[in-house]
Design a binder for these strands. Structure first.
Lengths: 236, 236
DNA sequence: TGTACATCAGTGAACGCGCGTTCACTGATGTAC
DNA sequence: TGTACATCAGTGAACGCGCGTTCACTGATGTAC
């Protein structure tokens, strides 16, 4: 079932289209991607692009799908680059990579985590699995770090709060059904940690935190290190 | 310098315009506010609205200004309603009100904290002070809670990390220059806490956290309570 | 090797739509005498 | 109290713009014989 020459050609042009789409979003905002605008940049008439995408929404879906996967790829890459370091360090590097990717690809990050594009609804069955990759990478590392650590987490991270028991059990069940079995506590810790780093990044991306905290680089790193220590994954 | 009848009339119509603008943004997304769209809803032709706003951007600025202030009002209201409770409880209530407001006014929250509206740049001198109100309300409460508390914060919240010293001193200086003198540690704690709650809300607003964590209500409350305890503002 | 033919990427015109903004105007309101 | 007048909120037409999408087409390419 190898690709024909024509399919390869199409795939290559689609990549080209997405490249220009990202350039435009960078300049004009994510809400302003348009078939006509892309055509203009590519020195092609708009209708020509309909050979490659059936409509604008299909293109946007592709961009979102790519963005989720590029983020997950970046995290895996950071993890694998530091695979000879202690797991707490690997986790640190992965969380640093999360922000680094967001700042290097603000448009793609906004595309997946910012306001939805007006009049467009991403199909969950396409983006869902791609979105989950990121969470699973982090939760997997947290799991391994927990298992390899002798340290005691602070009280609030040593067990799942009663109120959250049901939610976490449900999540663990769903993930197990999808072939990813991870301990409930690791899932909880990841669920706690994710919004913490996400919040800093979102505020930074839209320039809300800079007037309050200069040196976001340091701030982010300190917060992540605190978190890793608080979770008992590293001595403090 | 009292308002003339005409000025009052104009102010009233401007409120009406904003009301419809919010309705439209709710249905079509923040990027889709338009003079013509508002006119259509108000059964008015678009040019009529130019008696009230010189152009679309002035309207958007007004909406953003209002949103910042409405959020700050909601926080002050929550604080004042619980002024007879211990300060840690007041802080809890204010942080609960932050999320409650965001969920009740998703559009206004997106307007200030989400993607900027394409082709529009908010004038900092208008929105800046309004934006700061929220931070000052929370930092003020943290200060009073710290001063009235006998409890010991966990190590990472008991002092400002070296790397952050300069940033926080700078912030404290700027705020003092603006007539708001608050201790540096309180500013640091607020700067740490704000992105934590913000991250949960942003993920919730765009439906990213729900697939991971059912029962965001409980999750948010637990996180805020943990935070208040970790900061030593309440016994644990 | 040379010719006939099918494929299909890209074109240009057109559709109906929405946008912000300007302009000259109308007609109701309310004031000044 | 009645009339003349100024004010100004709202209208309708128009400007130039951009959008997604459709359609019939052209002309280069590459294949089949």
């Amino acid at each position: 079932m190898s690709k024909t020459r024509q399919e390869e050609q199409h795939a290559a042009v689609r990549e080209e289209i997405k490249k220009f789409a990202r350039l435009i979003m960078e300049k004009e905002g994510t809400a302003n991607v348009s078939i006509r605008g892309i055509g203009r940049q590519m020195k092609l008439t708009a209708p020509a692009l309909y050979h490659y995408y059936p409509n604008r929404d299909a293109l946007v879906t592709d961009l979102i799908f790519d963005a989720y996967n590029a983020l997950a790829d970046a995290l895996e890459h950071a993890r694998d680059l530091s695979s000879n370091l202690p797991l707490a360090e690997q986790l640190l590097n992965v969380l640093m990579a999360y922000r680094a990717w967001a700042l290097q690809h603000p448009v793609d990050f906004e595309l997946i985590y910012g306001n939805p594009i007006p009049g467009y609804g991403a199909p969950q069955e396409v983006t869902g699995p791609a979105a989950n990759r990121t969470f699973i990478i982090i939760a997997g590392l947290v799991t391994r770090a927990m298992e390899s650590s002798d340290f005691t987490p602070r009280p609030e991270y040593s067990r799942i709060p009663e109120e959250m028991g049901d939610s976490i059990r449900k999540l663990a069940g769903e993930m197990a059904a999808g072939g990813v079995a991870l301990p409930e506590l690791a899932l909880y810790l990841t669920a706690v940690g994710w919004p913490r780093i996400h919040g800093i990044i979102m505020l930074e991306l839209f320039n809300h935190i800079q007037p309050v905290i200069g040196g976001v680089d340091n701030f982010y790193r300190v917060q992540v290190e605190d978190m890793i220590r608080a979770m008992g994954l590293k001595e403090y």
